[in-house]
Structures are given as C-alpha cells and as structure tokens.
Amino acid sequence: MGGLAQNLTTIGFDADDTLWQNEQFFRLTEAQFADLLADHADKQHLLSRLLDAERRNLGLYGFGIKGFTLSMIETAIEVTEGRVPADVIAKILAAGREMLRHPIETLPHVHETLEALAGRYRLMLITKGDLFDQERKLAQSGLGDIFDAVEIVSDKSRETYERIFARHGDGAGRSMMVGNSLKSDVVPALQAGSWGVYVPHDLTWVLEHADEPETEPRFRRLSHLGELLPVVETIG
C-alpha cells in the first residue's frame, strides 16, 4: 500500500453485533410476536408484513427497539383488520420493554482486541439507534473507558463518516471502520475514503445486507474480531 500504510490513526467500531450480541434478541421477539398472532396470519406472512412496516417506518422512528415495537403494533393492527385484542398489544409492549432490559453479552475477542489497539490509535464507537438504549448497552459492556469518542447517530452514510472522522481524527483517509454491516459500516466508510473492515455476524438484519465490495483496495473481510490486529499492523 505504499504511503497509505503509514497513515492510519483512527479506528471506528460498530456496536451491535460487532462488539456485543443484539440481533438475536430481535429474532426471539419476532418468534414471540408470531405466536401471539398465530390465529390471524402464518409466521412467514406476518414477518414479511412486519419487515414492510419496519422499512416504511425507518424514516419516522429510526433504528432500534422502540421503532421495532411500534412496527409490531402497527402490523398486529393490520393483520387483524383493527381487531387486535388489547392484551396482545400489552404483550407486544412488554416484549419491547424486555428487549430494552436484555443483558449485554460481548462477542469473542472484543476485549483483548480493543485493549491491544488502545493507546496506539484513536478508538471510536460509532453506532446508530436509540440514544438511551445504546448508552445503556455501552455502560453495561464495560468498554466505555476504552474509547476516545462515542458517536450515536441516526444513520450511517458517507457524509456521516466524513464528518465524524474529521471531528475526532485526521480525516476519513486516515481512518478505519470495523463492523458487521456492509450497508452501514463498510460501504459508506469506503465511499468516504476510509478503510472498511467487514466482520460478519451469524445474524444480520435483512435491511443491512449489501454486496461485498471485493474490488475496493481498502476493503478487508475477517472471520472474527481477533483477526483485526494483524490487519491493522499490516496497514500501519
């Protein structure tokens, strides 16, 4: 990589399903939701309608559990043609509250990788979703003191990374973004001129899927976060 190899100073990390488990709780709640509405729609049809509602509502509610809960209620009203019992709505709300209380389970290799990089690079947490929920998860994870900066954003785009890496680092060109979402973490970071490191998770929300930018010279794909340090050292 020539001169580029000496330029990396800042590394951003996604949070959900990169540092700790998240999507599994959505899948479990979807299964509960399907059971609640089993008399009104089969599971696949119901979850397809739920996904449609989530897609419609992203611009209004943003990403996170609260928007997901509202989309479940909206879908329940739709599939029952307005006849959904109040106790079902109450159970949907209870399921959403339970998601907001779920314990934090960090993924393998997270602590040792962050500790190995801390002090050598500026480390940032760049996550999207509900402010209160993301702050709760960061506090419970025990990782908060490792990061030099935390940005909780409504969405992730090329402009997001340009702005954040200019504010907290030395610009996008000297930065790296690490995450499990090609659509949110990798592709827009590459578009901004950063390195983009993809760490797949077994469960990734369908609306976060995208094609791997295999021809991009700054793209890297890892099997797990424990492989990051050698990659970083190779880049510089």
Rank of each mutant, 00 (worst) to 15 (best):
L4G: 14
L8A: 11
T9Q: 12
I11C: 00
I11G: 02
G12D: 06
G12T: 02
D14Y: 10
A15M: 12
Q24D: 15
F25H: 15
R27Q: 14
R27T: 12
T29D: 08
T29K: 00
F33I: 00
D35R: 14
L36Q: 06
L36T: 05
L37P: 02
L37C: 11
A38H: 14
D39G: 14
A41L: 14
A41R: 13
Q44G: 02
S48E: 15
L51V: 10
D52H: 11
D52E: 14
A53W: 02
A53N: 09
R56C: 08
N57Q: 14
N57P: 11
G59S: 15
G59F: 10
L60V: 15
L60T: 15
Y61E: 07
G62H: 08
G64Y: 04
T69I: 01
L70D: 07
S71Q: 06
M72T: 00
T75P: 10
T75I: 11
V79K: 09
V79C: 11
V79A: 10
V79R: 08
T80M: 08
R83Y: 12
V84K: 06
P85C: 03
P85Q: 04
A86F: 11
A86P: 02
D87L: 07
D87N: 13
L93K: 12
L93C: 11
L93I: 12
G96V: 04
L100K: 09
H102P: 04
E105A: 12
E105G: 01
E105V: 14
H109R: 10
H109E: 13
H111E: 14
E112M: 06
E115G: 00
E115Q: 13
A116I: 00
A116K: 09
A118R: 15
R120I: 05
R120D: 12
L125M: 09
L125R: 02
T127Q: 01
K128W: 06
G129E: 00
D130W: 02
L131M: 12
L131E: 12
L131A: 09
L131W: 11
E135T: 13
E135N: 13
K137W: 03
A139V: 06
S141D: 08
G142L: 06
G142N: 04
L143T: 07
L143Q: 09
F147N: 00
D148Y: 01
D148F: 10
A149V: 10
I152M: 04
V153I: 13
D155T: 14
K156F: 07
K156A: 04
T160R: 03
T160F: 01
E162N: 07
E162T: 05
E162I: 06
I164H: 11
R167L: 14
R174W: 09
M177K: 12
G179Y: 08
N180G: 10
S181L: 09
L182C: 04
S184K: 12
S184T: 13
V186K: 06
V187S: 07
P188L: 13
A189S: 13
L190R: 05
A192M: 05
A192V: 06
S194D: 01
P200D: 12
L207E: 10
H209N: 02
H209M: 07
A210C: 12
P213N: 05
E214M: 13
R218I: 05
R218L: 11
R220D: 01
L222A: 08
L222E: 10
S223L: 14
L228I: 08
L228V: 08
L229C: 11
L229Y: 05
V232R: 01
T234W: 14
I235C: 03
I235F: 08
G236W: 10
G236S: 07
G236I: 02
